[in-house]
């Protein structure tokens, strides 16, 4: 009995040691490059500081009070939420469909796979440029379609509600390939024997997808949702390149707002508060989502 207990103990100890050794490099690097900046952001958020001066005035929680009443910030947060809901709702289903198609059709559609992957490779400079012409009110693709159907010109990027949705669509276009590859790898991970067995059993593609593919893919779908959630709540690139937050502040996101405060308005103190607030919101949402979905990758054997 005692022997077994000590065996268990020594096993636990060896697990602890192994875990520590395996995790150490990652934890150290994250501590230096991520955790330290987070701490410093929180500490700067307590100061009134223009970002460059040697004097900074400690003002306690004043910035935080301001943040709570900052209409622009909460409006930006609302835009982020819209982006989040649309991203999860569009990107993941489309990506599953594309991955399923590629998985089912096999090597003969390799060319499709490469082309479908292209949007992820394009830099936001090129995307911004191409879509400002493609979505142009005069001569743009959407306007041309609308006019051929007897409609009028469509101003997608210059008007408040549709500008946000136009950019959301472009963001989806850009990120779908990532989730496609992700799910494709997920299919690749499904044991070939399961697949063969089900096909021998006479299951159709549809049945296979619904009863075997999708359930086996579900941990990946859940983690894709978390990734998409975090990505859309801290999104920056294309909004900054395509609308600059405009028209007015209609497409402002938390990250673009924070960037402007910190690097062009000389309000580093308040900019850091915005960043810290954003960090709290994003982490909070992500952990909440994680709890709701529960079956994340790490908890299957708990």
């Amino acid at each position: 009995m005692k022997k077994i207990a000590s065996l268990v103990q020594s096993r636990q100890r060896s697990v602890r040691i192994a875990a520590t050794v395996f995790l150490a490099p990652v934890i150290i690097i994250m501590a230096v490059f991520i955790i330290y900046p987070i701490v410093s952001t929180f500490s700067i958020s307590l100061f009134d500081w223009n970002g460059i001066s040697k004097d900074r005035e400690f003002i306690g929680l004043e910035n935080w009070k301001m943040l709570i009443h900052d209409r622009v910030f909460w409006f930006a947060f609302k835009n982020n939420l819209t982006l989040m809901v649309c991203s999860i709702g569009i990107q993941i289903p489309v990506a599953i469909a594309l991955a399923t198609f590629l998985d089912g059709a096999g090597r003969k559609v390799n060319f499709f796979k490469v082309v479908w992957f292209l949007p992820l490779l394009m830099s936001s400079v090129a995307i911004g440029f191409l879509f400002s012409y493609a979505l142009a009110t005069t001569g743009g693709i959407v306007t041309t379609i609308s006019q051929s159907l007897g409609g009028g010109k469509v101003d997608l990027l210059g008007r408040a509600p549709q500008a946000l949705y136009a950019v959301i669509s472009v963001v989806a276009w850009q990120y779908i390939p990532f989730y496609m590859v992700y799910f494709l790898a997920g299919y690749g991970n499904i044991d070939i024997n399961i697949y063969e067995a089900s096909i021998i059993d006479g299951a159709t593609r549809g049945q296979y997808f619904l009863h075997i593919g999708l359930p086996l893919l579900s941990p990946m779908i859940k983690s894709a949702c978390i990734l998409s959630l975090i990505g859309s709540l801290k999104y920056f690139d294309l909004i900054y390149a395509m609308t600059g937050g405009g028209p007015g502040t209609a497409t402002e996101l938390m990250a673009t707002y924070m960037y402007k405060l910190s690097f062009s308005h000389f309000k580093m103190g308040y900019g850091s508060t915005t960043a810290a607030g954003m960090f709290i919101l994003v982490t909070g949402f992500a952990l909440m989502m994680q709890t709701i979905l529960k079956g994340n990758g790490s908890s299957n054997d708990e």
Partner: peptide, 8 residues
């Protein structure tokens, strides 16, 4: 021009 705020 039409869509003046969307031109870059």
């Amino acid at each position: 021009p039409d869509g003046v705020n969307s031109l870059n």
